[in-house]
Design a protein around this nucleic acid. Structure first.
Length: 130
RNA sequence: AAUGCAAACUGUUCUAUCGCUCCGAUGUAAAAUUGGAGAGGAAAGUCCGGGCAACGUAGAGCAUCUCGCUUCCUAACGGGAAGGGGUUUAGGAUUGAAAACCUGAGCCACGGAAAGUGCCACAGAGAAUAUACCGCCACAAUUUACGUUGGGGUAAGGGUGAAAACGUGAGGUAAGAGCUCACGAGCUUUGUUAGCGAUAGCAAGGUUGGUAAACCCCGGGAGUUGAAAGACCAAAUAGGCUAACGUCCCGAUAGUUAUCGGGAUAAAGGGCUGCUCGUCCGAUGUUAGUGGGUAGGUCGUUAGAGGUAAGCGGCAACGCUUACAGUAGAUUAAUGAUAGAAGCCUUGUUAAAGGAUACAGAACCCGGCUUAUAGGUUUGCAUUUUUU
């Protein structure tokens, strides 16, 4: 099922600091993805945080809309496109998605981009492993 | 009826699939299942006022900030209601035409300029102890005369300006001037009548540029901070303190390792040297308890100066009484995504086609103010057209 639990969200301040200090990142418009592996006990292989800059979108309802569409795209694809393809090394993937797009895109566009983002993320992970 | 403006109210609904947050039930617990609840009129700006909390606080004054017609409402307010005054405007009535008068609507940061200081651009002769450019007036000198010159008087007339020392008329005068008088306008003091009061009417006296959103004066108010407030629980690691054991030192007794007492817990001690300095080595431990405190968590935190309805009181803001319902609570932050249908708007005879769905997202809670707002409804005003 395509549930989205609290444990799949990145809330800890320590882990967030770690992610933004040590994580490696890449750009796939309209997202900037930052990720790092950390040995941390968890039921799920990944934790994610979605970020929309207040500087870029001043109105709260705009930020809400982007975050909701992004979260929906992540939720519906994470199992088939990410969880099953991750290397099974008992490490937690910390992932941050920063929205850097200049306009608000419809859901279908974001859905396609999310699929591309997962592919690129897996390639980057395998390169780092080597 | 249409259009425009202003104000008030409203500001989409249903179904399917996949999800999110909180609460209840089943479940040892987790997982899972199931039931229920889940953004706004402004949640916004954070501009005022409170509640609440911590800290501070004898009282008074100064400084700073802020408010400013009256009465009332309110927990309080810079908010609201009712009124007073001013000002702009429309209509009515009056009139030769206006003003005064009556009615309606809009606006007002509406204490003091008669406590003091300052400022009043440009233009203009002069902008505040007034001023003499043109003009007017008498006098003196000169000239046959017209006139010219001189030092004076004069603010009625011209001209400038946002504003020229209150306006009109008469007297007065060389010409003039509130210089005097009558009528009128504004301000102000006193008395009196009406009103709780701001004020209004009348009488008498005084007075006559504006500016306080210039300084200032007068009166009222304000302790500071702000839920990242504050209260509590508290892992691991490191360090602090206490106790016991251990270790070391000193003393006493027995007499060569034991006992007792005191002290230290990093010094004593040892090496390099004969000594001093310097430097190096070495032990600095174990167990238990304990206060602070970090990550993290709980409370604060949603039943409230609350909402709806009816009755009563009040012109109204609002108050009182009774009844009813139970109504978001996240914390990297839920309230969503996709599809379909209905509703809305436009075109069209219909069938149908196309389009739009605003402003905007709770963060401790209330009362206001301000700003944004597609479409719809209601009310008021203005304009145009049609009918009677």
């Amino acid at each position: 099922m395509n549930r989205f639990y609290k444990e799949e969200r990145l809330c800890s301040k320590k882990l967030l600091d770690l992610l933004f200090k040590k994580g490696s990142s890449f750009l796939l418009y309209p997202y900037r993805a930052t990720f790092v592996f950390e040995a941390h006990p968890s039921k799920f292989p990944a934790q994610i945080v979605i970020n929309v800059a207040k500087k870029r979108y001043k109105h709260a309802h705009d930020r809400n809309l982007i975050k909701r569409r992004t979260r929906e795209a992540y939720r519906l694809q994470k199992h088939t496109a990410l969880y099953e393809l991750l290397p099974n090394n008992n490490q937690l993937l910390l992932l941050s998605l920063q929205y850097v797009g200049k306009e608000i895109y419809p859901y279908t566009f974001l859905e396609k981009r999310m699929a591309q983002l997962f592919k690129k993320l897996l390639v980057q992970i395998s390169n780092e492993g080597n």
